[in-house]
Design a protein around this nucleic acid. Structure first.
Lengths: 91, 91
DNA sequence: AATGGGTATGCAGTATTTGCATATAGTAAC
DNA sequence: GTTACTATATGCAAATACTGCATACCCATT
């Protein structure tokens, strides 16, 4: 399922136009992103937690040449599924 | 930021009552979950991809006792941040 | 306001994932 | 239709995930 399909489905479920559904959806993702940018974890009960994980610098490798390279520290968004979410898939 | 705070913020941004904002948000998460339950990955351009990762059974260990234990196969939801999302945090 | 419940943390050791460069193929967005 | 993004594939080192369990904590619901 891609974003377009998701929007189409939401449009139906929420009785919104597709444009409105998309705007609503984008507002939500932007709100979450803004919180994360502010180094604020986002906890959604029953769904999961978004958090920014700091990754240390380390040694990597160019798989094409085999050459070793230094990889800088970076950050990425992690999503930790809530307990309820795991149970859905393991029953 | 927890769900309540997120809902409050969305309520303002979207000019919805908190009850409506919450219903909208729940509809979205449920839609995503339903797709995942149907073994369908959810790709949100510019945000990320939710996918169900199947984990094989394997041998683990109780770190308290050192005892070896068999861990059953399981599934969990993985979120892979999109390229745009990584860039936000590494600039 | 209180209480129950989900979540974070720490612990040890192993299994798993990550992420590098880069091109291509496929898909999605506009 | 054309542009933009994403998945895939490759080898390999190091970071991280995962497990049971107890504690502390914060949230949600009554």
């Amino acid at each position: 399922m891609n974003k377009k399909q998701l929007i189409a489905q939401l449009s139906g479920s929420l009785s919104l136009s597709k444009a409105d559904a998309e705007r609503t959806f984008d507002t939500i993702t932007n709100t979450i992103l803004d919180a994360l940018k502010g180094d604020d974890n986002v906890k959604i009960a029953g769904f999961g937690t978004y958090k920014v994980a700091k990754r240390k610098a380390r040694v990597g490798r160019n798989p094409r040449t085999g050459e070793q390279i230094q990889i800088a520290a970076s950050q990425k968004v992690k999503f930790l599924p809530a307990k309820a979410l795991k149970e859905v898939f393991n029953k």
